[in-house]
Simulated assay, not measured.
Amino acid sequence: MTIRVVVWGENVHEQENETVRKIYPEGMHTTIAKGLAEDPMIEATTATLQEPEHGLSEARLAETDVLIWWGHKAHGEVSDAIVERVANRVWEGMGLIVLHSGHFSKIFKRLMGTPCSLKWREAGEKERVWVINRSHPIAQGLSDYFEIEQTEMYGEPFTVPEPMETVFVTWYEGGEVFRSGLTYKRGGGSIFYFSPGHETYPIYYNTDVKQVLKNAVKWANNPAPAWAGITKAPNTPADKAPNGPMTIKGETLHKPGEAGFR
């Protein structure tokens, strides 16, 4: 079964910064999608901030199994309505993979419910990503660790909720450590945060990084039907109770069949 992936890219640095444009002439989103497409199980397409509805119409999201999100400079330009649309799809069962500076994206903060802040430094230092959960599906095909020659440092404390699983922990040349691969569950959807991916370095060409993303797509994919109506809170009348009609005892706030307060 083919896994349908949309790689969402902010697509701002590639247009404004010559260094980024030289490394990713087709945009980071396209490079990520091409890396995923090396796996015959994955069908990867792209969407960007500049497209109508940011490329994430209701129809397209309904046909998306896993959404990958990369953003940095223009988090505030993402429509709140689109954020809620994506959140609803995650609750329904769509997988979500959030990359690097996407920790500050509206969708990640919406689903985490925390500031998602961290320490950082741009110094082109070495990053060693340690695999601390060897049996996890996202870690398959990797050695004990892999290295990225130049990267941006992300350091603790990382103000996210306690994860379901920690797959990777990173050590940086400057001495900091960071929980660089975390999993979460929100409603029917699985979420993976992966920190490597600063735009001024060719990180998304790295063989191990590409392996992580391929594995993460397969892990986040949920083949079950969408959990339609997960956000609804329907009134179940007394005469429709599973054990048969009930006699209403006492006073009520609502008329029969009336929607609840929100």
Rank of each mutant, 00 (worst) to 15 (best):
G260D: 14
L61M: 12
A228C: 05
K255V: 06
W69T: 13
E84D: 15
N206A: 11
G188I: 00
H198W: 05
E162C: 02
M1L: 13
E51L: 10
K218P: 06
E199C: 13
G244M: 06
G189Q: 07
M153Y: 00
T236S: 14
D144N: 11
Y204P: 15
R186H: 09
M153D: 09
W219V: 06
D239G: 11
V86S: 12
W70K: 04
D65Q: 03
P163L: 02
N235V: 09
G175P: 07
K73M: 13
P25G: 11
V177D: 11
W219I: 05
L36R: 03
A123Y: 04
T48E: 14
T45D: 13
K106C: 09
G181L: 01
P161I: 02
I107W: 00
L111M: 13
P245W: 03
M41N: 15
K73I: 10
H75V: 07
K218T: 07
E149C: 01
K34L: 02
L96Y: 02
V217L: 06
K22S: 15
G250S: 09
T166M: 10
T46A: 08
V78N: 09
E16C: 04
G102V: 00
K210W: 04
D239K: 07
E127V: 08
S105Q: 06
V90R: 02
K218D: 12
A216Q: 03
E173W: 00
W227N: 15
V12H: 08
T252S: 14
K185C: 12
M164P: 02
S135C: 03
E251T: 12
E63F: 01
Y172P: 12
Y193F: 12
T236K: 13
A81I: 10
F178E: 12
L111S: 12
Y154E: 08
L67A: 07
L61Q: 04
G250R: 03
D239L: 05
T231R: 14
A228D: 13
Y145P: 08
L213D: 10
D39F: 00
V129K: 03
S79M: 07
G174Q: 11
L36K: 05
P115Y: 02
A74T: 09
Q150D: 12
T200N: 13
P202G: 10
N88D: 15
E258W: 00
S195L: 12
A228G: 09
N206L: 03
T2P: 15
G113E: 06
A226K: 10
V7R: 02
E152Q: 11
E51V: 07
K210N: 15
Y204A: 14
D239S: 13
H254G: 14
L213T: 03
A139S: 14
E51R: 05
K214S: 10
I97E: 11
N222P: 07
E127H: 04
K255T: 09
G188Q: 01
R121C: 12
I132C: 11
I148Y: 03
M28A: 09
I97L: 11
P242Q: 03
K240F: 07
H136I: 00
E58F: 00
G141N: 05
G55S: 04
G189R: 01
N206E: 13
W8V: 02
G189F: 01
